[in-house]
């Protein structure tokens, strides 16, 4: 849910249900890297309430689009980590196999 104004779309507070520090902190980090963002922070109103409020203020672009771009960036990074981890696993297994073969020949 977005709490903002049609007159100034560059400042908005997004209230996300069923999210916590896991999501909010990583999005905050990603958004703070974006040169269009002048302020980004989050708060959890109450620990018993499954809700997180993310405040985004930009240099002029709609806060909503900037948040979506931040999520997109983070998704690309996750995809990259996934493929890198897959490659690292393949490399590790190959190294292990080579080591075992060397041990056998000895």
């Amino acid at each position: 849910m977005e709490l903002g104004s049609y007159s100034d779309q560059s400042k908005s507070t997004f209230s996300l249900v069923d999210e916590d520090h896991t999501f909010a902190n990583s999005v905050r980090f990603t958004l703070n890297q974006d040169p269009r963002v002048t302020f980004c922070g989050y708060s959890i109103p109450h620990p018993s309430d499954n809700r997180v409020n993310i405040r985004v203020q930009t240099t002029g672009d709609p806060a909503r689009e900037v948040l979506k771009d931040g999520c997109q960036d983070l998704m690309l990074m996750c995809q990259h980590v996934r493929s890198t981890f897959d490659n690292a696993m393949t490399d590790f297994k190959r190294t292990q196999t080579n080591t075992e073969q060397e041990m056998d020949t000895k």
């Binding site: 849910m1 007159s7 979506k68 983070l74 998704m75």
Partner: peptide, 26 residues
Amino acid sequence: LVLNAIEILKQKLDAVRLSEDTVEAD
């Protein structure tokens, strides 16, 4: 476990990215 965690993080991001639930604060 690591790969599943990355996949779930992506799903969470996708859910927010594609949500169209907006309320006019005024």
